[in-house]
Amino acid sequence: MDHRILGSLLLMASLAAPTAMAQRVPLAQAPGKDMVEAACSSCHSLSYIPMNSRFLSPEVWKAEVTKMRTVFGAPIDDDAANTIIGYLVSQYGAPKKP
């Protein structure tokens, strides 16, 4: 992710800090977690992620991230989006069918 974007995201997050700090939603420990925390917490609490688990297919998680970017204006570049989608699918996606 472009550092300027990440920087502005963190700034946004800190502006919203009093509420953002209110509740720390512990996300699963896995690669990509930091990026998800930075990219997905500026508009709403991270609880939107575990609340929507574990039932979304990889396609739907991808569509959700695309919606956040294109419809709601989340400043996330393609590389970051791929990392984020990978994390969401593996940690919060529908369990793979055997």
């Binding site: 209110a22 939603v25 709403h44 609880s47 609340m51």
Partner: peptide, 23 residues
């Protein structure tokens, strides 16, 4: 995931309600 995430929260002026998100 919702069952694990949701919990009762009391905000001033309200009885405990089921919080799905705080922000």
């Amino acid at each position: 995931g919702t069952r694990a995430e949701a919990h009762l929260v009391q905000t001033p002026g309200k009885q405990p309600l089921i919080q799905l998100s705080d922000r």
